[in-house]
Nucleic acid binder design. Sequence first.
RNA 1: GGCCCCAUCGUAUAGCGGCCUAGUACGCUGCCCUCUCACGGCGGUAACACCGGUUCGAAUCCGGUUGGGGUCACCA
Length: 496
Amino acid sequence: MSASFTTATGADVRVRFCPSPTGTPHVGLIRTALFNWAYARHTGGKLIFRIEDTDAARDSEESYAQIIDALRWLRLDWDEGVEVGGPNGPYRQSQRSDVYAGIIEQLKDRGLLYESYVTGEEMEARNVANGRDPKQGYDNFERELTAEQRAAFKAEGRQPALRLRVPDRDLSFDDLVRGPITFPQGSFSDFVVVRPNGIPLYTFVNPVDDALMGITHVLRGEDILSSTPRQIALYEALVEIGVATFIPRFGHLPYVMGEGNKKLSKRDPESNLFHHRANGFIPEGLVNYLALLGWSLTNDRDVFSLDEMVAAFDVVDVNPNPARFDHKKAESINGDHIRLLEADDFATRLVPYLTDYIADPPTPEQQEVLTAAAPLVQERMQLLGEAPGMLGFLFTSDDELQYDDDALKTLGETSGDVLRASLAALGGLGDWTRESIEAALRVALIDGLGLKPRVAFGPLRVAVSGRRVSPPLFESMEILGRESSIARLEKLAARS
RNA sequence: GGCCCCAUCGUAUAGCGGCCUAGUACGCUGCCCUCUCACGGCGGUAACACCGGUUCGAAUCCGGUUGGGGUCACCA
């Protein structure tokens, strides 16, 4: 590649995110969006959001809506593109056919694109006839077809595909995350950019749109690394006809892998961004974890905000090795972010996960309980999806409260005595507060019955929550109220 | 198979020639705190794939080997 093309830097940075709307958003895709976004924000540049919907058979509006949903949920905004518009629209490739048609004509007139009539079967036969591997691929043999030959094919009713004449030399570029990469001449042959029906392929529209939109840095998945020299060849052609004035820099981000050594597949639920949202990831936590897949803030801290990421992010610091998605680590990071939330904010975010128990929005009574109980569980949660298990008992009537089997198993010989002694101690209690409840129970059970705390309070926990583990007992009883607490102790005492 | 990429504890990473008897986090684990579970605190476990070079000195640079991954479509 010529060294004479200039590339923009600093505030002139223009990066893009250009997914195909097929299927539900993948964590790898979103990680790519995040890095592009962070780079734009860090440099004061622009993020362009374009949709590559040139495959009518696989693209869907539902998928498009999901990608928008995902970006907005994670608070990744864009400066130009679908939904927001901009000077380089339209931003959906399905609406840009006219743009492509003009460029195809110019390229063809210059001889940079040429007609190719050979079919796949014919090419295989040709390779066999020439003693080559049948799968060897195209050998550029139609570069110099004469007008007569072309006319003959057309007379047969054949329509040509258009191939790009690739330069007969090595193609190199300096990858932002991997350094210099060279593809030797002959690594690939002239490739099809326009189908016989006139519809251009991804290999064409992607670089063309990048050029037209002034993209300076192409940050994308590693899977496209090997087609980068092809794109550079196209770019050189675009420069020749004046459509592009420079070749962008490329940076290939590492894969996001699943268990073992396989790329996180679309079938794998871990790959589905919304699966994580449904489980109770908060955007702060998920985006933080995604950032850690190939990048780090400092050597001794991995919990940080988007703002902190923006201040520090640079593509050149991205690690080239593939990263495994570790849900344990992801959940731990999420738990840290949950703990960072303001109490009211946290309580509000719990609501959608508690719809089996409360209304959305909650009734005033439910809101009161939720506000009181949220701080008790904020430091014990990694995922908001744990809320029903931890708090459900507070929104269940005394009659309907169920006991978990493993909770009942912890009940022993003394459980009945503990419950009866507790009822006696609590019966005449004046104030119903965490402190008064605890004081009365300690006197009755620890001092009175001589029990160890964990033995004494276990049965009460089961009676109140129906579970073996629960939020702190005395606080739970205070929130539940005197009447309900006593009813629950009596209910369990009756069966002990 | 051709071409390309990658290679530090189980995982994610720090390290960009001496600060490294390799740091941090998750995980696992011991102890403390403690009404359960968590949170928090203090410990422990565990890695430079291999072989050659370059250098006074290499996890760091170079070459090779091995291993992994990707890509070779008229899909994107």
